[in-house]
């Protein structure tokens, strides 16, 4: 897919997500089958940026496992196992009640997680950028002490820190191919999204703590998506266990 086609696809995906139409109209199963390494980052990052959601994580996991794109695989979440309902209204995540997550019954298939971790990493990256965009707009618009908040170095550095974390996560996601790379990439993305949540919440001050401002929706989503398929903390520990076992640091990317 060349850059122009990619832009067209991104526009179509964005319109579809914002309108609330299903991905099926865009030919999602075919796109996933043909160019997963292009469409998964595009779609999931857009989910984060737009604050929308789809059950496409199921398809990504099933496709990577070589299974038909039906049903809902089990999704590790802390010590629990969840499923992402394709439709229905049973919601077991009160923190982010928009997401149709439900505790697994126990008969759902267990699948390899690497592709799902990459997809969720891109989603977290988009969520982080959504929060950064809100905070940036706010500090440029709001004045205190007779000057824009954006002119205060303490806030500029918080937003710079957020941007750096997101850029680092994007580099790790772009380079992720194997299991270990996917694990590290989701850890980086989870950590970056939590960094974004902390700094952007602070930059947005009181308004960001209200339910009428949309920041809280992204904060809730970041927390839930971070925990899904392994949180930044859990995955970082898993990477450390691997290091101790190997006794040498794998170099996962080369020039």
């Amino acid at each position: 897919m060349d850059p122009a086609e990619r832009t067209l696809l991104a526009d179509a995906l964005r319109k579809t997500l914002v309108s609330g139409a299903g991905l099926a109209d865009l030919g999602w199963p075919d796109m996933l089958a043909e160019e997963p390494e292009t469409v998964v980052p595009l779609l999931f990052r857009l989910l984060g940026e737009t604050g929308r959601h789809t059950p496409a994580l199921n398809d990504v996991l099933l496709h990577a496992a070589g299974l038909p794109l039906t049903g809902t695989p089990a999704l590790p979440f802390g010590g629990a196992r969840l499923v992402w309902l394709r439709d229905g209204s049973s919601y077991d995540s009160p923190l982010d009640p928009e997401l149709p997550l439900r505790h697994a019954r126990g008969d759902e298939p267990s699948v390899p997680l690497a592709a799902g971790r990459r997809a969720l990493g891109w989603w977290l990256l988009g969520t982080g950028h959504a929060m950064l965009a809100l905070a940036r707009r706010h500090v440029l618009d709001r004045e205190q002490f007779g000057r824009p908040l954006a002119s205060f170095q303490a806030l500029r550095h918080r937003l710079a820190e957020t941007y750096v974390a997101l850029e680092g996560a994007e580099a790790a996601l772009t380079a992720a191919t194997d299991d270990t790379g996917s694990l590290l990439a989701k850890a980086a993305a989870g950590r970056a999204a939590l960094t974004a949540a902390r700094h952007c919440q602070q930059a947005l001050g009181g308004i960001g703590f209200t339910a009428e401002h949309e920041l809280h929706r992204h904060v809730r989503r970041a927390l839930v998506l971070d925990a899904l398929l392994g949180s930044a903390r859990e995955l970082t520990r898993e990477a450390g266990v691997l290091l101790v076992r190997e006794g040498r640091t794998p170099r996962l990317v080369d020039l």
Binding site: G168, A169, A171, A172, L184, A187, A188, R191, R233, L235, T236, R237, E238, A239, G240, V241, L243, V244, T249, L252, V253
Partner: peptide, 13 residues
């Protein structure tokens, strides 16, 4: 493993 993983994650990034 927490500390070693975090050090590796930074280097990998």
């Amino acid at each position: 493993p927490d500390a070693l993983g975090a050090a590796w994650l930074d280097l990998h990034t």
